[in-house]
Design a protein around this nucleic acid. Structure first.
Lengths: 122, 122
DNA sequence: CAGGATCCTGCAAGATACTG
DNA sequence: CAGTATCTTGCAGGATCCTG
């Protein structure tokens, strides 16, 4: 890697990062962001749809994390003036650049589950 | 993805994961693990060496995270009976399977720093 | 040199209730 | 349907001092 502590730092999010890992993790870190990005990776989804896919997330966290992803420019939020209200979330072009990373993370976890036999039916 | 909430779960770390993302993140999540894995990705390093590369980490966190990585089977710890004490950390074969993931995460962050011009000299 | 022991704190995340 | 508003909590992470 060209970049290390001694020569460069990253200025992002009004913060200073010393390592490229930290930069990426500031976008996808935390408990929920990778999961959300996973479900948005190849399709537009509605709020309730995401909630249904991720039963353990609270509405508060779903709302909060989607907002954070939107502020980071990864996710696009579109509101349709219908009744009942319809709001759709999808990846921006910028967000799509993260898909290979997301896929790599998912693939490793999936592979571990399969090879280690830790994957069990519900 | 073959795996989703409806059909399968992962049993790991004495816990249940609903999503492959969570499995991987349980190994590399948190503030320090990706950084440590980054510095260990292609070479053996000593405790003090890691501390020097990552000035912001406290000795406690360095010790704690290395121990966690060791317990997860990603990192190997070797003690040499010398004075002064020498302890070397390196990736296990299992840990090395994570390198592509680590590289992908680093590459994305590095690329963002470069294209966005957020990369500045110290 | 490579840590362990303690004490402490902030904030990510949860619970619950309510609303345009 | 798609959220907000409060209140609460747990634990990741920090600060500091000590040691084989």
């Amino acid at each position: 890697m060209i970049i290390n502590h001694k020569e460069y730092v990253f200025k992002l999010h009004n913060q200073t990062y010393h390592c490229a890992m930290d930069v990426t993790m500031s976008y996808i870190g935390g408990k929920w962001k990778t999961v959300l990005l996973w479900y948005l990776r190849n399709q537009t989804r509605r709020f309730g749809e995401l909630k249904k896919q991720i039963p353990d997330i609270t509405e508060k966290m779903l709302s909060l994390q989607l907002k954070a992803l939107e502020e980071d420019g990864l996710v696009k939020r579109e509101v349709y003036a219908e009744v009942p209200l319809r709001v759709e979330y999808s990846l921006t072009d910028f967000g799509k650049t993260l898909v290979p990373v997301i896929e790599a993370i998912a693939a490793w976890g999936r592979n571990l589950g399969e090879t280690e036999g830790k994957l069990v039916e519900k």
